[in-house]
Design a protein around this nucleic acid. Sequence first.
RNA 1: GGGGACGUAGCUCAGUUGGUUAGAGCGCUGCCCUGUCACGGCAGAGGUCGCGGGUUCGAGCCCCGUCGUCCCCGCCA
Length: 607
Amino acid sequence: MQRTHTCGQLRAEQDGQPVVLMGWVNRRRDHGNLIFLDVRDRTGITQVVLDKEVSNEAHAKAEAARSEYVVAVKGKVRRRGAGLDNPNMPTGQIEVVASELLLLNEAKTPPFSPAEDAVANEEVRLKYRYLDLRRPQMQSNFALRSRVAMAIRNYLVEEGFLEIETPFMTRSTPEGARDYLVPSRVHAGSFYALPQSPQIFKQILMISGFDRYFQIARCFRDEDLRADRQPEFTQIDLEMTFPQQELVFRVVEGFLTAAFATAGIQLTSPFIQMTYDEAVRRYGIDKPDMRLPALTDLTGELTPELREQLKIEQRLPVIGFVIPKAGGLSGTQRRALTEEIRTGFGDCGLDSLDVARLKTNAAFATLANAIESRLAAEPTLEGGVTPEDLIIVVTPKLGTPEKWNYDPQWIWKRVGALRLELAKKFADKHKLFDQTGTANDFKFLWVTDFPMYEWNEESKTWDAAHHPFTSPHEDDIKAGRLTSDKGAVRALAYDIVLNGTELGSGSIRIHRKDVQAEIFRSLGMSDAEAKERFGFFLDALEYGTPPHGGIALGLDRIVMILAGASSLREVIAFPKTAKAIDLMVDAPTPVSDAQMRELHLKIASRS
RNA sequence: GGGGACGUAGCUCAGUUGGUUAGAGCGCUGCCCUGUCACGGCAGAGGUCGCGGGUUCGAGCCCCGUCGUCCCCGCCA
């Protein structure tokens, strides 16, 4: 028996047609001499009718059928009678009257039903991943993922990019994330590393003259996980020769537009841009969520006298922001929130003003009104500030936090974090995170001019903020800032941000050996050390390296946001838990002593 | 490495101040039912209250430890 149609395919037009369907029993409704089987495959569900008067034998088999049995149905499509349509399902105008039913396979009673909308806890879902993946929501997530990847491939190939694979077993680089290591059997005591990204290879491909490269590449990082971080993840990695950064942006906007179109979302490009400094100043974070109103600097609204009265530190900024529709709190609720903020900032010396209360006090009413009108200027608050909105004004208490001295952005970052925390807390009220199915749900943003260096408080050194192959701004090199003022050096590095999630980052690379060597030196790496770690790369730079640059975007994150999911596990078929365990296959596991010996390994302690 | 939430039937969860025999819905099993589509009706089975220890006359509930899942900080060039 050969399947003729899928379970999501049949419509009224096929009335009377003989068909063979195959799939899983989604539900069975037994009415005695009449049994309904809902048969499911990844395309949908079709109601099959087993009538004892049509086939006694088929009906008997249907009596034995249970949830998740795999069945084959031979029968005829029938337009349902008047009043029997089910408008809730695409195939609801028809049913298949079975003349023959085969139970292709039985199924144990599943621990949870793929037919239920309610989801089981993640532990069970991950253990029985094959059942979880049968759920229509998951099927649609992976169909979406496939379409997105295909659209991106097509777009990039059209634009002249070549898809080229790079090794999974490569050389460990101590910079950046922790490596996953693969012990060598042939070379005792030596290890390959799984790539954190194909960074160096793609640059070598540019030196090799491939002009435009891309790859949908698996990357591996042995760091602690989050909802949006898995130990292995997939990047859309690309690199091109002779690009201005704007050209990279156009390519990315192009393939994202193509990708989102597969989900029926029509994006408009170019995406807006903002420098890193601006992002931190206006949003307190390098990946602003543009669905929410920005931070507003209210410092100018407070005279020294007012600060004095309100016990506010004179040297530091006063920062306000609005959470739309989260207002109207009672006095008790406001006091609780104020207290929460105060303790949340702990030893940082920050406090907040209760604007609603200020308003009721004649001495401060002018200030409160001024604050309100300043906040209302924020463009995302089209209707101005209303009593429905929640106003937060963060003030530094008397006594200066030490951090201010070396990181002037610190207070902005803290308030930016508070803005996100409160936005999350009041998501039900402002509904700005809800998906409406339009391009409006997706706020893209380019963040440019990242700092080249980052002060590492622990080791008291300057580290590369992006990676050490990133080109600094020409001006900053010329001005000698690589040595004199590292904190002020801007890189030709950029991030693409979607709804507050970093989708990807890239840069224009260094293509001259002298500059590369200088950067290594500026990072405290001696020439000998640089040669030891990146000698092959420095060599390659000497054989006619074209200017080049690129970017890498997290495919998993793109699909996650597009699918409206809140965890990567919803869009990765076989993901790992927060402790990097695969609950289905049970990995990792210890290996046999024989394997260990072969790899010249010994476990120091199993404590 | 640190903080937080959760863990009770196959699943989702309730379980009062520590007090008799630990409950509900769904699912499951059996019987009945020819128009259901979350079918319905009747009957029934199903529990190491994550695990270990402690307090107590008595612990699902309190204490200590531990394991697991999730979220966050650190970390993630």
